[in-house]
Design a protein around this nucleic acid. Structure first.
Lengths: 195, 195
DNA sequence: CGTCTATTTGAATGTACTCAAAAGCGGTGG
DNA sequence: CCACCGCTTTTGAGTACATTCAAATAGACG
């Protein structure tokens, strides 16, 4: 079950892990399953884990002053997700993470995270590279949010994440793109009529 | 002149650097100055460096299909800035970085970056933590972009970066917030009349 | 003082929004 | 198997807010 985790790490750091490295890391994690719509992280409570999705999916969102939800990240199989600020700082989470389907995750707490970084140098590297990638991706997304219209953003999203379209409801994709579900519906209609 | 760099790194990793560690790192960097409005990084060309601002300021932006600029990041003294995707991958940059004032930077190229990570473990950690912070900050900014109105974003920006208000022209702040300069002008007028 | 750039203001426009309702879709139980 | 229920998506009509275009004012710099 953790083969996908091993592949994920090896792919990121660019070399195979020794069994010792990998087993040491695995000993710091544990597996858990959540029902559909269960909360992995709740706003206001400390987020004590970082999660690696083995099976199923979940997503993070922020709630605004009107109670509306705004999707931030979707995590399907082989994605990592957390409220990183809360996880690192121990402050209450400002995001929620909720199962989108029944989901099985590997969980790593802060002590485990720090041990991994301290004791297994390749894991410090792994998290560094992972962070770099995540940063590059989200910076690009922000740049596009501020510079291109919703239709182009949806088009790019569709090409970049065709798998997401199959498994994530449209109203959450709209929210991820920073628009209302009605607007996305109209955009799709418009795009369909062009082709 | 590099005292500020040392302080920046020590603050991030949470312990003093040995002279050996710091000097080894410094040997990988060099200092350079740019005139106001000079380009440190140009869209389409590979970004070969990551920059640490010693004196002055610069900012990164993306250009849209109408030729309009959208500010992404401002870098004053003690900030790091780069087109990280281009720097890491060697692909052409999609952002520009331009001096906002005459600016003096320390420059670290990819080989230097990799050597630092490989040879001085604390630098792997430094970049990991720096990336974490940058990711947390930009994720928060994206979340707010999608969930609160421009007036609140400006208000938060003012409180978070009062120093920026002094040194960065308003039309760039507007662009950073994802709105037009005229709109920011009206927002400020509105806010002034409330108090 | 004059030029260039940045900011403010006004008026008209347009894009995405809200509110509201209908249609579609899936699952459950009679 | 079909009827019903809850949830998602679509559609329509009116609205609101940021935008565009245009011009005036203010500031910075040589």
């Amino acid at each position: 079950m953790t083969a996908s985790l091993r592949a994920n790490i090896e792919h990121t750091v660019g070399r195979p892990l020794s069994d010792e490295e990998f087993n040491t890391f695995c000993a710091l994690t544990f597996e858990k399953s959540f029902d559909n719509k269960a909360h992995l992280v709740e706003e206001g409570k400390v987020c004590r884990y970082t999660y690696f999705v083995l099976q199923g999916s979940c997503y993070s969102y922020i709630t605004d002053e009107h109670g509306d939800k705004h999707a931030l990240q979707f995590a399907l199989e082989n994605y990592w997700i957390s409220d990183l600020y809360s996880f690192i700082s121990g402050q209450p989470a400002i995001y929620n993470i909720e199962a989108l389907e029944p989901v099985t995750v590997l969980m790593l707490n802060k002590e485990g995270f720090q041990k991994a970084c301290d004791l297994i140098p390749i894991f410090e590297r792994f998290f560094r590279i992972q962070m770099q990638r995540a940063y590059v991706a989200i910076q690009y997304r922000l740049a596009k949010t501020n510079s291109v219209d919703a239709e182009s953003r949806y088009e790019e999203f569709s090409h970049l994440h065709p798998d997401f379209l199959q498994r994530i409801p449209q109203y959450l994709i709209a929210s991820y793109l920073g628009i209302k579900p009605q607007s996305l519906s109209r955009i799709r209609k418009e795009m369909a009529s062009k082709k």
